[in-house]
Amino acid sequence: MAYKSEGSNLVPVPSNAVIPERDINDMPALECKNLGITFGGLHAVENFNLTIGRTEIAGLIGPNGAGKTTVFNLLTNVYQPTTGTILLNGMDTHGMSTAQVSKAGIGRTFQNIRLFNNLTVEENIMVAMDKSIKCGLFAGLLRLPSYFREEKKAHKRALELLHIFDMENVANHRAGSLPYGAQRRVEIVRALATDPKVLLLDEPAAGMNPSETADLMANIRKIRDTFQIAVVLIEHDMNLVMNVCEGLCVLNFGRIIAKGSPAEIQKNPTVIEAYLGKSHSTKAHEAVNEVVEENSDTGSDNK
């Protein structure tokens, strides 16, 4: 139960049962403790506590400017946190570089797509496999057998990964020349190529059409099932979030205002107010509105 009756008022209680049951006995993939960062005087993220199960699909939602992307930048050490700790598989990532964090097991995509535009799709993915290609500078320059062996292996792996989205046919296309939706998918494949334990997706459905979004939903589940990894996604498409995520965390003004299952979040008055009270994002606002209305028909025991 995420709500406790206190007199006649319903008070939200931070739910601890966010982790899916199957993950509860394992060490969490990712743990944030009291994470915070300040830009000038602005507390972009404050007192951020979150635990992600090993095979969980979690959603991070909230109005624009809430600090969602900043959380991703903290997790990948693009920014150094002002306070708090991040544990990746129980290991403190403090002081690591972004590249080291990637090697330690966090893969990510970006809200504004960041592909290597002048490289082919396949090369984009092979760059991300850098740590697993065992071929030194001189082996490459002199074209030693190890060069050909490793390139062939990487090529095969890249095509395997592209197969997730049935994109083998664009392997030799320039990444920058692909349509928007395809670029988003290549970014996901590239993040997967780093062999992550946790995959962070920053608005993966932004700019996609409804059929692409439906595909993406199925594929996010498929990715989790195939690779047995945790996925954290930031998304404004409420339909996607409510359908795919097992646990949700809602941010507003850099603070967590609610945590829980999608069903719990839909009913949470604080969340509804955050979206409705100040209409930061009309899209999210309408979506939540809809979901809330739908839900009020089925009736809820909390009301």
Partner: peptide, 17 residues
């Protein structure tokens, strides 16, 4: 590949290790 990746997008290059 890594060198050209850095040229095209340093932040993304770092993010993939």
């Amino acid at each position: 590949r890594a060198i050209m990746a850095i040229r095209d997008n340093r932040i993304a290059a770092e993010s993939v290790g």
